[in-house]
Design a protein around this nucleic acid. Structure first.
Length: 563
RNA sequence: GCCCUUGUAGCUCAAUUGGAUAGAGCGCUUGGCUUCGGACCAAGAGGUUGCAGGUUCAAGUCCUGCCAAGGGUACCA
């Protein structure tokens, strides 16, 4: 609707003030406050000084011409102080939308193919470390972006990039050799959890002792040189972590189209280094290899240590190049912790200097900390693992609803909603008891709305409604408000694909659930005495169910049929 | 030191990216099931948007200064 309306306004502008016309995309349409219509434009305010008339005069002229072109979609076009033009959709337009939604089903809200290829890299867990609740924020955001991007018509590749090598791995290997025999760890039940523990113990042991540090450095050197025994241990333990990640992804309902590994990119990085030096994008300094980006106000990035070991940057560059050349993408999106923002600006600048001045975007989110304000750090060993969070929340929900059969769906819904609801700019201080709630603005609240819709649609099968479906009978304020919300869904998808602000999705879902609950209390759906209207209301419930289910799907949340 | 982000109701967060009367939930006060599921609904109280200036038809949003919190800033990722 938004786009059609833009076009209509544009045509009128063209006719009235051909000299002052602005680009069609610059005609802003917003959702006005309550009782000011469905759409609103401030174009008259913008145009007033250009055409040297008062905003209200401009608005009034526009309105008169718009009235002639409005067709049946709008019942009213008004102007309001200081120069807003407000559009009120007709009841018929809203009623007809229900038929459109029910016809399109889950495809409602899909945009046309945009012909643009996008890769979204997210998750990026480290092997040999615990998968903790901070990683959950990354996965929730990344997966939502992928789903939204696809729905908005972009050819989207979901990518993972696993940190399977580096200092943390060497530390873990050192500790495994020193403190554990192979028999002792072969029989562990949760091997990934065990590895995480070994890693944090190792980190602390090395920090506190020079002797340990020396030993570890030797192991690290041997590992980097390809010592066969260490490589064997690395391969085995690495697989434990990878298996663990797979099971977590499965539980979360996310999947990746491609998976990159740091151990592989490290080799590529070494290969590409001579070329980088030759092109003078990087240089040697103080024994290390650096990119001096001071002239761009981006400081200095170290790509290779003095001892010849490869740092993250030298792996990310060949990876980025691969994304653009091998996968032929037009836009590259990387989701990580906000603390890496400068780092990625540096990497993107280096890519630009190499001639890859493509569309590269870093989406940073603030980190998750624990309630006491202490930062989670797997090095310190004070992390709350994702699994621990799952089981604690499930337990909590089980206590509340002992009869529920879909604890997993409900608790995952609660967790993902809680995480996604906050804009990526805010820090999340997590207190499991306080944070993951089940009433109010939460996942379960929305799931409950869906369960009610299901309840109605199930019950409908048991009764006989003798009548004729008359969609024009939907004229109750609550019905129309609900439809108005459904109308906005496609525009929301399009918005998020542009702004990457995934938190709008849970807010939309909550508002939609809200309007449904409110409708539910005011309007009885199944009413044999009013069969015609009942049949129409069933169509509305179906449409609401479709849109709400689809909204949740974008967030990676599913809802139980019964709660 | 320099750079970035944040500061909105008692608490946790929104605000269509410069638009109209700054909105939700939790908590608090009150009301609602002989009814399609009360994990719900309806109503109320609660605000100098950190402080002070500036820009314009219009500022929570932009610019300047200050205060407070967090992060980044050459060998972590």
């Amino acid at each position: 609707m938004k786009k059609q309306l833009q076009k209509i306004i544009y045509d009128v502008l063209l006719k009235l003030w051909p000299d002052s016309v602005i680009a069609i995309e610059d005609i802003e349409l917003s959702y006005p406050p309550k009782n000011f219509g469905d759409y609103s434009t401030n174009i008259a305010l913008k145009l007033a000084s250009k055409v040297k008339q008062s905003p209200m005069a401009v608005a009034d002229k526009l309105r008169k011409d718009l009235m002639k072109n409005k067709r049946g979609d709008f019942k009213l076009i008004e102007i309001a102080k200081p120069g807003h033009i407000n559009f009120y959709l007709s009841e018929k337009y809203l009623q007809d939308l229900i038929g459109i939604i029910n016809e399109q089903g889950e495809e409602y809200g899909n945009s046309r193919e945009k012909g643009e290829k996008v890769m979204i890299e997210y998750s990026q867990p480290n092997t040999h470390k615990e998968f903790h609740i901070g990683h959950l924020r990354n996965v929730s955001i990344g997966n939502t972006l992928v789903n939204v991007s696809r729905k908005a018509g972009y050819d989207t590749i979901a990518a993972n990039y696993i940190g399977d090598t580096g200092t943390h791995v060497a530390k873990c290997l050192w500790a495994l050799n020193k403190f554990h025999t192979s028999e002792s760890f072969e029989e562990k039940n949760n091997k990934a959890e065990f590895l995480g523990k070994v890693y944090s113990d190792a980190a602390q042991a090395i920090e506190g002792s020079e002797e340990n540090e020396k030993e570890f450095k030797e192991i690290q050197k041997k590992f980097n040189e390809g010592d066969s025994k260490l490589i064997g241990l690395w391969k085995k333990t690495r697989q434990w972590s990878l298996d663990d990640f797979d099971s977590i992804y499965k539980k979360l309902g996310v999947s990746f189209d491609v998976c990159f590994y740091e151990s592989e990119e490290e080799i590529e990085g070494k290969k590409i280094l001579p070329e980088l030096l030759e092109k003078k994008v990087v240089k040697k300094s103080k024994g290390a290899v650096i990119a001096d980006l001071e002239q761009y106000d981006l400081g200095i990035l170290v790509l290779m240590r003095g001892d010849g070991s490869v740092l993250y940057g030298l792996k990310d560059i060949p990876l980025a190049i691969k994304k653009f050349t091998k996968y032929k993408i037009d836009r590259s999106i990387i989701v990580t912790d906000i603390r890496q923002d400068l780092y990625f600006q540096q990497v993107f600048k280096i890519l630009e200097l190499l001639g890859f001045d493509k569309n590269t975007i870093h989406i940073g989110y603030e980190f998750v900390s624990l309630k006491d304000g202490e930062e989670m750090s797997s090095r310190k060993g004070n992390v709350v693992s994702a699994r621990e969070l799952f089981s604690q929340v499930e337990e909590k929900i089980k206590k509340q609803f002992p009869e529920s059969v879909d604890l997993e769906k409900i608790s995952l819904g609660a967790i993902k909603f809680f995480i996604l609801k906050q804009s990526s700019r805010t820090k999340i201080e997590l207190d499991i008891d306080e944070s993951i709630k089940i009433n109010g603005d939460t996942g379960p609240y929305v799931q409950y709305a869906l369960a009610r819709m299901n309840g109605i649609l199930e019950k409908q099968k048991e009764i006989e409604l003798k009548g004729e479906k008359k969609i024009e009978l939907l004229e109750h304020e609550k019905e129309l408000e609900l439809i108005r919300k459904l109308l906005k869904f496609p525009e929301l998808v399009e918005d998020i694909a542009q702004s990457y602000e995934v938190h709008q999705l849970p807010y939309y879902a909550i508002k939609l659930a809200d309007l449904f609950h409110s409708f539910y209390h005011e309007c009885k759906v199944l009413d044999e005495k009013n069969a015609n209207r009942s049949l129409a209301r069933i169509e509305l419930v179906k449409a609401a169910k479709t849109v709400l289910t689809e909204t949740l799907r974008l967030m990676g949340v599913s809802a139980p049929n019964k709660m």
